[in-house]
Amino acid sequence: MTVAELTTSLRVRGLAHRYGSRDVLRDVSLELNPGTVGLLGPNGAGKTTLIRVLARTLTPASGEIDYPDLPGDVDRVGYLPQEPAVLRHFTALEFLEYVAWLRRVPSADATQAARDALAAVDLLDRANEKIRRLSGGMRQRVGLAASIVNAPRLLLLDEPTNGLDLEQRMHFRQVVRQLSPGSITVISSHLTEDIAPVCDYVVVMRDGCVVFSGSLQAMCHLPEDAPRPVVDQLNHAYLELVRA
């Protein structure tokens, strides 16, 4: 699947949101460039709320998002929530065709888009199988396929490896590496091992605030031309940020 190369960044300015008396986003400002961005933070840091705001399923109390290359609707946004809703009585192909229709993929292209998305997550051989008969890991991959069936320019994955075993997590990382480099992909996680192998940049949140935004090397206080940091280095830098 391909998308037009993006020339501008997604800019977030002054996002704030509350649930009752609790501030879950507090003056969040950042810039996301084309590539794969890791959104790290402990549970309750505000990651899911930020993802929902970017996906336009939640309107923040204040702040704005500026994304000139993205149309005003959500047709070119892909979103995988923590618990993706899949229609288990559909086959995988039927469900992806339905999602393609929801995302306004032209009818003539919907079946091919659905097949391409299933191929991208290595499930094309299960296209005609009922989703209820698939394993939990396969259903998660159907959810991922649904998030990319419209060739999104902005792809938002919220804790996408929840419930996956080690082999399934490794396969997920392979899938993410193959996604279009011309889009912005944001992967939310509280596990650095999900971020280290696939992300170009990282955003760290704590208590509703962004406490770091930059490259993996910068997070680990390494030169920008240094090799990609290993998980132990990221773990140490991450704990320094969230425990400060």
Rank of each mutant, 00 (worst) to 15 (best):
I184S: 06
N162G: 11
P106I: 07
R103V: 02
R115Q: 04
Y98V: 09
A16T: 07
G78W: 00
G41Q: 06
A146M: 02
G208E: 15
D232I: 05
A85K: 02
Q168W: 05
A61N: 10
V53I: 10
A16Q: 09
D125N: 09
A100N: 09
V230P: 02
D207Q: 08
M219K: 15
V198M: 09
S213A: 14
G143P: 05
L25I: 08
R13K: 13
E31Q: 13
A120C: 08
I131S: 07
T8F: 02
D158L: 13
A196W: 00
G182S: 08
V211Y: 07
T2Q: 15
G46E: 04
Q112K: 02
A218K: 14
E193F: 04
V142L: 12
D225P: 05
T2A: 14
T192E: 05
I65C: 09
A4H: 08
D125T: 14
R18A: 14
T2Y: 12
G72K: 08
N162H: 05
L15I: 08
P227S: 06
L118C: 10
P42C: 06
P223V: 05
L239G: 02
E167K: 14
L155E: 01
M138K: 05
H17E: 06
C209H: 00
V3I: 15
R206F: 01
A119E: 14
N43Y: 00
A145P: 04
G143Q: 13
P68E: 00
D109Y: 03
G143L: 14
L166P: 05
N150T: 01
